[in-house]
Amino acid sequence: MLEAKLAEAGTLKKLLDAIKELVTDANFECNEEGINLQAMDNSHVALVAVHLEAAGFKRYRCDRPMPLGVNLTSLTKVLKCAKDDDITTLKAADEADVLNLVYEAKNSDRIAEYDMKLMDIDSDTLGIPDTEYDARVTMPSAEFTRVVRDLSQLGESVRIEVSKEGVRFASEGEAANGSVLMKQTDDDEDTQAITIEMNQHVSLTFSLKYLVNFSKSASLCPRVQLMMSNDVPLLVAYDFGQGYIRYYLAPKIGD
């Protein structure tokens, strides 16, 4: 059986917000180390991988590995019934077709209980090769959100170029072009810092609508990392104490 007690429903709500536009159904793979989810969008252009560490829960027990097939729209509805600071327990029996969610109010005696139907999901899990990336950019997640939202007003794609100068995001639209250069900052201890580690110049083009989707994870984590090598998928990584959410996005190819 699974029993996982989270300090705050808000964490799950934010996670769901960060993946529900990409994926409709997904297996939450539970084992004694925690909960993992890996899913691709319908067009197989983007992949999201989530990990929640067992140690990050107030209480965590999972006797044997079990997949919980979840419709994310349904889970979003059930989570809307929780206050952000409700203590939240997820429970499922072995071979169960129901996920039980209990919300305990922090400052009152309210206890709410919901049962959600689980489903069988055939998911084609992919092996993600260990990659040495040629460039790693670390920046405030809110800045990343801003850049991709701004440029998505102009065009469908963005070219991301990393050089010694900094990281440049450029988009060409029918009516307007735009580019944003973010220079490396001196003080990399600052939470607003932009850090660039680079072995070689990289330049890649991606679809902005996916990046806008990924950037919703900014609510989980103040920093984001972009990992890039020429001609391989971009990795956008948000690490938030209790685990991580990572997105992979296949590049667009030349004109």
């Binding site: 197989h44 983007a46 992919l126 794609s157 667009k252």
Partner: peptide, 14 residues
């Protein structure tokens, strides 16, 4: 205009 690659071009079965 360029085309969109699929992740299947890069990631294989586990």
């Amino acid at each position: 205009k360029g085309g969109q690659k699929s992740l299947a071009n890069f990631f294989g079965p586990p």
